[in-house]
């Protein structure tokens, strides 16, 4: 029983180990490590960690969303455009409204995939154009803002590292944990694992896929709000969204989510974001061109998927 748990969690344990080693390495390079530095860490990973979680949910359910970065940028631009100069209460209400928008955008994506029966890749490639277009339309150039009180509640201020930590962990506890335990959550794993068995077990595959993309969208939305709170502006760039999408896939895969679907969780991807963040920072410390981090990230993603595939294949043959 305990051995089984260890075996099943071995990936997460590995990720924690690597993140800890990299973290210790990074901290050892700093003259001091206090709550200010901790907050800097957290702000560095917050948007991408949330996005990786969103992508992870979708991959667990057997899909992939290449528009998830665009969705996050869209919410970022919406928030920055309409929250600038508004009161705290107004901004809170707008936050809720935009999170609802992100759920709807995700649900719509899932609906299109279910109805059209076109591959997830193609649909989300196309929607990524539409969403980025929308973002550019709403916030044509970088700018905007957010009520400072709200922003500080989300991302903290100075050495207050608790707010960003809460922003990171709260969605895990409030959204993912209950979802994981619910029938809907199990159904998401089920359609990713084996659609036919899921159907035979009484799962409505199409409706579950819509919910899957909606939850993924919500995480992208939270990521967009967090980005606004950190940068206090909206940046409508396709390059940002493309990189974010790429990193979200890398984060999910590094975090132990199987591309074939049905396997994984959200803690791994959140920790993987930490690793993806440490690699360039450490390189930078040593005066190495941070462009190398791109090589490492790319190669790491490939190797992880490769290793995962080989392990699974060996398991099958035995």
């Amino acid at each position: 029983m305990n051995m089984m748990l260890v075996k099943r969690q071995s990936w997460n344990i590995g990720i924690v180990l690597i993140a800890t080693i990299l973290g210790a390495w990074q901290i050892s390079r700093l003259p001091v490590f206090g709550s200010y530095e901790a907050r800097t860490f957290l702000l560095g990973i917050l948007p991408i960690a949330l996005l990786s979680m969103g992508q992870a949910i979708i991959i667990i359910g057997g899909g992939i969303n290449l528009a998830i970065g665009a969705e996050s940028v869209l919410i970022n631009c919406l928030a920055a455009r309409f929250m600038v100069g508004k009161s705290f209460i107004a901004c809170v209400l707008l936050t809720l409204l935009f999170l609802l928008v992100s759920i709807l955008v995700g649900a719509l994506t899932g609906l299109i995939i279910s109805k059209s029966k076109i591959a997830d890749i193609i649909v989300t490639l196309a929607t990524s154009f539409i969403l980025i277009g929308l973002a550019m339309y709403i916030q044509p150039s970088p700018g905007g803002g957010m009520n400072l009180t709200l922003a500080q509640m989300i991302s903290g201020k100075g050495s207050a590292f608790l707010p960003p930590l809460i922003t990171l962990i709260l969605p895990l506890v409030v959204i993912w944990l209950p979802l994981y335990r619910s029938r809907t959550g199990i159904a998401m794993f089920a359609i990713g694992s084996n659609k036919d068995s899921a159907f035979l077990s009484g799962v409505n595959v199409d409706f579950t896929r819509i919910k899957l993309y909606a939850v993924g969208g919500l995480f992208a939305g939270i990521s967009g709000i967090a980005l606004t709170a950190i940068t206090l502006s909206g940046s409508p760039f396709a390059s940002i969204s493309n990189t974010a999408t790429l990193n979200s896939v890398a984060g999910a895969v590094l975090g132990g989510v199987a591309l074939s679907g049905g396997v994984g969780g959200l803690t791994g991807p959140a920790l993987a974001a930490l690793i993806l963040y440490f690699i360039p920072t450490i390189l930078l410390n040593y005066g190495i061109d941070p462009a190398y981090s791109q090589i490492i990230t790319g190669a790491l993603t490939i190797l992880v998927v490769l290793a995962g595939g080989l392990i699974r294949n060996r398991g099958k043959k035995n």
Binding site: A187, F189, A190, S197, S201
Partner: peptide
């Protein structure tokens, strides 16, 4: 199933990647 007809197939309709407990939960 709700109408009182329950099948068992040659290939079990259990979701391979999740625990038996969660499989039971899935079908209520």
């Amino acid at each position: 199933r709700k109408g009182g007809v329950a099948p068992v197939f040659q290939d079990p309709a259990l979701i391979p990647d999740i625990s038996i407990q969660r499989n039971l939960h899935l079908t209520g």
